[in-house]
Simulated scan of single mutants.
Amino acid sequence: MTQHNTVLVSSNDATPATLAHWKSEEAAVRARLSAPGVASPEQIQGLSGMEIFEAIFRGELPFAPIGETAGIWPIQASHGGFIFQGTPSPAFFNPMGTLHGGWIAMILDSAVGCAVQTTLPATAAYTTAELKISYIRALTPKVERVRAIASVLSAGRQLGFAEARLVDAEGRLYAHASTTCLVMPRR
Rank of each mutant, 00 (worst) to 15 (best):
M1I: 13
M1W: 14
H4W: 03
T6Y: 10
V9R: 14
V9Y: 09
N12C: 13
A14M: 11
T18M: 10
A20N: 11
W22Y: 01
W22V: 00
A27G: 08
A28N: 00
R30A: 13
A35R: 09
P41A: 07
E42Q: 09
E51H: 03
F53H: 11
G59A: 00
G59R: 04
G59L: 06
I66F: 07
I66Y: 06
G67D: 07
G71F: 02
G71D: 04
W73F: 14
P74A: 11
I75P: 10
H79S: 12
F82Q: 07
Q85C: 12
Q85F: 01
T87E: 15
P88V: 00
P90H: 03
A91H: 08
N94K: 01
M96P: 08
M96E: 09
G101R: 04
G102K: 07
L108Q: 03
D109G: 09
V112C: 01
V112W: 01
G113W: 14
C114H: 06
C114Q: 05
V116A: 05
Q117L: 15
T118S: 09
L120D: 02
T127I: 01
E130S: 11
L131C: 05
I133M: 09
I136P: 00
A138H: 01
T140W: 05
K142F: 13
V143A: 04
V143Q: 05
R145D: 09
R145K: 14
G156D: 00
Q158C: 09
L159F: 11
L159E: 12
G160W: 07
A164Q: 03
D168K: 07
A177I: 08
T180R: 05
C181R: 12
L182S: 11
V183E: 10
M184S: 06
